[in-house]
Simulated scan of single mutants.
Amino acid sequence: MNNAVYLVTARQSGEQLLIDAAADAASISSLLRHGEKDADREARLATIVTTHAHWDHTRATAEVARQTGAQVAIGRADAAQLAAERGIDAEVLLDHGDRVRVDGVALEVIALRGHTPGSVALALPGEPTLLFTGDSLFPGGVGNTGDDPVRFEQLFTDVTTRIFDRFSDITRVFPGHGEPTTLGSERPALPDWRDRGW
């Protein structure tokens, strides 16, 4: 599925946060070790944040959590699916406005309901802000809502009010699949997205 996996490593302590342990635990382990090169101390994965419970974003979650002892976090409304499909009871249930911390840096949890009920994005503050959006926002549109107009309206509204209305055009977007983009590149197309309904 060509999923993206993202790793945030604190330079001073080596503490790490992994976003979406999608598949291939061996490759993820290699990524974690590579993160040590950016740290003054031995890197340690503290948290795995799952942006949503779809199978292609969760296949390595149990194994990576077992290997590293990292806690697992997921949007509250997706936790039951993760437990049912992967046998993982997440230690942290995320709600809109929560914070996930890595060595003192707080990433904001932004609920983007519609692709799944518990989909979340993470905002890493800085210049520019970095947004990890899972399958809720891509270059060219919002995520799949199964041709359900109610789900589309929810996701489009959340993406508009919680992302585009709050963050500047230089904000970088890192989706769950494909290439990064910026809010400035996508903003002009918002009316077209609404009109087409996907």
Rank of each mutant, 00 (worst) to 15 (best):
D40R: 12
G35I: 04
A46G: 02
A46T: 04
S185H: 13
N3Y: 10
D192Q: 11
R166M: 06
H54E: 13
G69M: 05
S168W: 01
T161Q: 15
D20V: 05
F132Q: 06
T9N: 12
H115M: 11
L93I: 02
F164H: 13
G75E: 11
S13V: 01
L32T: 11
D147R: 09
P149H: 11
E127A: 12
L31M: 14
V173E: 04
I48E: 03
Q16F: 01
S168N: 07
A73M: 14
T133F: 15
L130S: 07
T129P: 07
D169G: 14
L155W: 05
I74G: 03
L183I: 04
H177G: 01
P191E: 02
E186K: 08
V159E: 06
G126S: 11
W193P: 00
G146D: 14
V142F: 04
D24E: 12
T181H: 09
I110N: 10
D24G: 08
I28Q: 03
T171H: 07
V64Q: 02
G197I: 11
L31E: 00
R86K: 10
G197C: 09
N144F: 06
I163D: 05
H52S: 02
H34K: 12
R86G: 00
L190T: 07
R99L: 10
W193V: 08
G134T: 09
